[in-house]
Amino acid sequence: MKRTLIAYISIAVVSGFLFLGFSNYKTGSKESKLQLQSEILKLENGYGYQIKLDNKLIIRQEFIPILQGKKPFTTSQDAKRTAERIIYKLQKRESPILTIPELRELKIPEFNLN
């Protein structure tokens, strides 16, 4: 009986450590979030953005993505929302590629002409 109890207590302790291990893993994951920042660029006739990872420039966008021609964002808020979407996607380990439906959803006026 005692032996069995000790056995179960050991199992409980091991399970506890396992659980703690999982919790640590979770915290670790949260801490390992990518260090991504966006900066809004004030351009001659509008706004752009750049994305940095660990303070290293990885994406610089002086013109609205997808759109033909060199049209910057009209407002800094448009640029900011778009940059934040890219960071959101990168944090989810998704490709930073932006699509027309996404830019519509972000209410970028150039994609909501209709």
Binding site: S15, S29, E94
Partner: peptide, 30 residues
């Protein structure tokens, strides 16, 4: 014991869905 294990298992699988796959060190995945 099995209940505890079940709880742990469900916890971790939920987190997998929320956080994505963390094994790849690449910044960009897909």
């Amino acid at each position: 014991a099995s209940l505890t294990l079940c709880l742990m298992a469900s916890c971790s699988s939920d987190d997998d869905e929320d956080l994505g796959n963390w094994t790849d060190k690449s910044v960009f995945d897909g």
